[in-house]
Amino acid sequence: MRLLYYLIRKLLTNPYVLGWSIAFTLFWVFMGAYVFSTDIAYLNPSVPLQYYHETVYYYTAGWTGSIVLFSLGSFCTTLTSILYYQTGALSHLFRYSKLTPVYYLSSIYAGSVISSVVIGGLLTAITYMIFSNKFGFNVYPKALMTLLLYIVLSSVFLVSFSMLLDIIVLRTSRKMAGLINFIPLILAYVFGYGYLFINFDNTVYFNPYTVIETLVISSYLGKPVPINYFAYYTATNVSTSSGLISLPLSILSLVVWTVVLTYISIVELRKLYYKPSQEGRFL
């Protein structure tokens, strides 16, 4: 439990985590609410109130999905560097202490999940308040507890992904770190916006990033989101012609990804040995 307590304390007081995961992500919340929302504001007098409200809901939910993804992606980019400084300790401690790969990963997962729920919950609350203020009515998340549960699931996946990236760097070369560290963040932005504007069709189920986004949006709306969000959102009237996301399938996809990556991490962690940080030098 002490490793868990230590990790939570360190993660939630880390200025880089707070800066990238909260402060920088807040920038996008403001952009979504006040800069990119001009089309929505324009709709106000021209469409029936019911459609206007529904459109605003979809718009806000879409942004919440992206914001949560950006935030967790940033968080995991910070997390990716944790293992780099612990490899020598781990190879020793797995053999000469009570520490086991399962205990170590459990602590990191639990610490990250708790931190992610705090960060994700905070950003969801801020998004809700700012978007409600902008559009003049209460755009609250329809299934808040489900949304938090999805944030938990998402953060477990992203931690397992970060661990795998760590292990790839440490099993190959530290020089790869500069390239690999930012992958969770880059993918968050690519697929965070990608899902909103591109029709991925049924491939959304195979991509954990789009799965995360669709789950968060669905819980915000209180109902499954269309597979083709962009076509649906840009339709002149609200229809579900593109089909809806299957929530059980999305959850299953995320769970399978997480289990597979975690299993690989547990096996590979035992094979890790100390890699001097100087190995990452280019000059």
Binding site: Y85, Q86, G88, L90, L93, Y96, Y274
Partner: peptide, 9 residues
């Protein structure tokens, strides 16, 4: 051991 690496946790 007093080697530094085990204390990098």
């Amino acid at each position: 051991t007093n080697l530094p690496q085990p204390y990098y946790l």
